[in-house]
């Protein structure tokens, strides 16, 4: 009897289970798709979800910034295609990623 009462009150104290907010990675855009050596290009990630963390990698060059917007500053030596990847991870450890390729012409 006591046990069942205890269970009843404990259940009343617990907050209702939170509904998981879905992770949606809408788009990854670059402000230009072709650039000349020495130019920069800015990338924007649009995503929604709980406590999103953005992780960026570029196949070459340096990425400046953090969060939803970063700028690629290719070194003068670079030419050809550069693949930029953005991975978003939410509070539930769900991850989604998108790629954009920009081309540096000499």
């Amino acid at each position: 009897m006591l046990l069942s009462l205890n269970t009843f009150f404990s259940a009343c104290d617990d907050p209702p289970p939170e509904e998981e907010i879905a992770l949606i990675f809408t788009e990854l855009t670059a402000d230009k798709d072709t650039l000349t050596a020495g130019e920069t290009v800015t990338f924007n990630a649009t995503a929604s979800g709980k406590d999103i963390v953005y992780n960026w990698t570029a196949s070459a060059g340096a990425l400046l910034g953090s969060g939803a917007e970063v700028t690629l500053t290719p070194s003068p030596c670079l030419s050809g295609d550069i693949l930029v990847t953005c991975a978003v991870t939410d509070a539930y450890d769900n991850t989604k990623s998108k790629n954009v390729t920009v081309t540096i012409v000499e």
Binding site: W56, T57, A60, A62, L63, S66, G67, V70
Partner: peptide, 14 residues
């Protein structure tokens, strides 16, 4: 593993 700072993988030079 490449080093990541503030969610950005650092370029190879650094």
């Amino acid at each position: 593993k490449p080093q990541v700072v503030d969610g950005v993988t650092l370029p190879i030079d650094i």
